[in-house]
Design a protein around this nucleic acid. Structure first.
Lengths: 158, 158
DNA sequence: AATGCTAACTTCAGATTTTGAAGCGTGTCA
DNA sequence: TGACACGCTTCAAAATCTGAAGTTAGCATT
């Protein structure tokens, strides 16, 4: 199948994975949320090679997750900023952080809710009733197309 | 630096990325949350090559995200189940789903909160005051070690 | 006017990883 | 005896990644 084909499935999760499901992309996003904007800073803080960084930043700009902007005309200098679309990936990074701190321990990133001042670990909740949510509290139903696609794959294998 | 070194940083996010920040691992997790348990089903539904699937499943078992269990002794047959640790990655997959449905459109996975019956899109909220949270509502503070590590990297580049 | 410096990349060869197809081992069922 | 299912393993070719070095554009210093 190949990784690129993930974009063409009926699954909303795989279509996202094709775009951001890459270790370096996730590292770049982490950095962006920590406030990093410049090529060399991304490079130093993530440890990615400049070649790959260049590719990934291009991709992310094409996907409108980051935006490349000149912050200086002479000499030409650019920075990479999160777009609204990119900023909306925050829950993904936070979910990773939460899991890391729960299950891997070690150093921490402390989060403070600016509005109420509390130190928090953000939680997935039901927007309707406000209850915290886990895998077992929610039922997932696939769209007919996605269901059909899965059935076809199952049958096509033999 | 290389991807394996992500495990040895002071950043809780990169340590997680080293373990689950891979497209195929994320696809395997998606499948696991959809109820898939068997090797061949993972293979067919994710499109990963059997070689890689085998590697990734091994990794995931070592990391105790999945558990390999015999469901039949003769002939020997195995299945892969989410552990508690693995099930706790649910918010990551849901965060990806949410973003996909908001920004990429297309087919959907409908989620229903079993307890209250509502169709929902789970939301990251403040456990203290119950407010929905976005990137700008929260301040992140790094542990002293992590800060120091970043400073060292910055200085070491020249 | 030559040298050095910074930032943002690009290039390239060697190493590593991934893909895709094929095959294997164990055991059941007809 | 033969066909089939499942859970993998093997291997070579293709693709990707790493790390070091180089490039470009312009400012600043000697």
């Amino acid at each position: 199948m190949g990784r690129a084909d993930l974009a063409n499935t009926s699954c909303p999760v795989s279509r996202v994975i094709e775009r951001v499901g890459d270790p370096w992309v996730l590292m770049i996003l982490r950095e962006a949320f920590l406030g990093t904007r410049r090529f060399d800073d991304f490079q130093v803080q993530t440890g990615v090679s400049p070649h790959l960084l260049s590719q990934r930043l291009k991709q992310l700009c094409e996907d409108e997750i980051l935006q490349r902007r000149a912050y200086n005309a002479h000499p030409p200098r650019y920075e990479y900023l999160l777009t609204d679309k990119g900023r909306d990936l925050w829950p993904v990074i936070i979910a990773l952080r939460n899991w890391g701190q729960t299950w891997l321990g070690g150093e921490t990133i402390t989060l403070t809710h600016k509005a109420c001042g509390a130190r928090i670990d953000p939680v997935m909740t039901c927007p309707d009733c406000g209850t915290p949510l886990g895998a077992r509290d929610v039922q997932a139903d696939l769209s007919p197309e996605f269901k059909q696609e899965r059935k076809t794959r199952r049958e096509g294998k033999g």
